[in-house]
């Protein structure tokens, strides 16, 4: 296999990459709210947002203006400092996790652009060789946002929300780690680039066909990790008003949701790269296009599941994670180990 010699990664390139990630992912995260409302509306035979702009497309702008200009209320008796920094933990960790994710293909800025001409922009901002673990660790740290928000706001619903955050974290974390362990054993590396290299042989070489159980377990745990509907215990409005977000308004509330949608994109990227062939060319379709299609499919899957299933109780989540998914994951690892040895 021919190894392409890449230009040197400079700090300017990394900074440009970081700005691109920040700008595009926060825009996509905003657009994600529109997509979610539209997809849910079509599945439930409604129209969804229609009034602002054509097909309601400018609804994002209207929502953005609303979030930015709303009064920022800090409740009395709340722990003000923690209350104020909690949303930024969610948003910041979501973007830090994206630093180790290969998001877009690498490119070189054309020479005719002043100042930055000729700078090579890598596809991963921080290409560390333990990428998968770093991403999962950072996304786990992101749950400190809801936890601290709920505890700081001196509100019973908030406390219940943060208690649910703690049990949700302690439930799914084991399943996530064990489910990706089997693919990691097969590839023998923790780098997402190596995962991509492992699946170069086209459709048949996708990790899904070798590790279907691990894929399903990872998806389920990913739903819990991003706090999506079957497991949206933290802020289920039918039970706990708005959980950890009860007392938040304006942009601080918005930051929780930018973080949540950025995490959804991260989980989609990991699933696409680890299990679904990554950014290799598939037949005549270029690699960068196919990876975006895969990411979009998993993002759509999350919305689809939200429209299809009711959410479950916290004790059901713990039962599911510890008594069903974790044993299956362990058995999967043991079988994978035996198959690899024989």
């Amino acid at each position: 296999m021919e190894i392409a010699v890449l230009p040197e990664v400079t700090s300017a390139g990394v900074i440009i990459k970081a700005i691109i990630i920040l700008a595009i992912i926060s825009a996509v995260a905003g657009f994600g709210t529109y997509l979610e409302r539209k997809v849910l509306a079509f599945m439930q035979r409604r129209l969804g947002p229609m009034h602002v702009g054509p097909f309601g497309l400018l609804q994002i702008a209207a929502d953005g203006i609303k979030l930015f200009t709303k009064e920022d209320i800090v409740p009395q008796n709340a722990n003000k400092l923690i209350f104020q920094i909690a949303p930024s933990i969610t948003a910041a960790t979501a973007f830090i996790a994206l630093a180790a994710v290969p998001v877009f293909p690498d490119f070189t800025i054309p020479e005719w652009i002043p100042l930055l001409g000729g700078v090579f922009v890598p596809s991963i901002a921080a290409d560390i060789n333990v990428g998968v673990l770093f991403i999962l660790g950072m996304m786990a740290a992101g749950l400190y946002g809801p936890l601290l928000a709920g505890m700081a706001q001196a509100n019973k619903w908030g406390i219940i929300g943060s208690a649910r955050t703690a049990i949700q974290f302690l439930s799914y974390e084991v399943v996530t780690g064990l489910s990706i362990l089997a693919p990691i054993m097969l590839v023998g590396s923790l780098s997402l680039v190596d995962f991509n290299e492992y699946q170069t042989g086209g459709f048949a070489s996708w990790m899904v066909w070798q590790q279907p159980v691990a894929f399903i377990l990872f998806l389920i745990a990913g739903f819990a990790e991003t706090n999506r509907t079957p497991f949206d215990l933290l802020e289920n409005e039918a039970e706990v008003i708005s959980g950890y977000a009860t007392e938040y308004s304006g942009m601080r509330w918005g930051m929780f949701f930018i973080g949540e949608y950025a995490n959804m994109i991260t989980v989609s990227v990991i699933a696409a790269v680890m299990f679904m062939g990554g950014y290799n060319d598939l037949g005549f379709i270029a690699g960068w296009l196919i990876v975006i299609l895969k990411i979009a499919f998993i993002f759509f899957l999350m919305l689809w599941v939200r429209a299809s299933w009711p959410h479950i109780r916290p004790d059901q989540l713990m039962w599911l994670c510890w008594k069903v998914l974790m044993p299956i994951a362990v058995i999967n690892i043991v079988i994978t180990g035996f198959v690899m040895m024989v």
Binding site: F134, G137, A140, Y144, M151, A163, A166
Partner: peptide, 22 residues
């Protein structure tokens, strides 16, 4: 990162039960 994020999350759960954190 992974170990201590999880461990201190469990510690928060105890604090939530024992103290009025505000």
């Amino acid at each position: 990162l992974i170990v201590y994020v999880g461990a201190i999350m469990a510690l928060y759960a105890f604090a939530m039960m024992f103290f009025d954190v505000t």
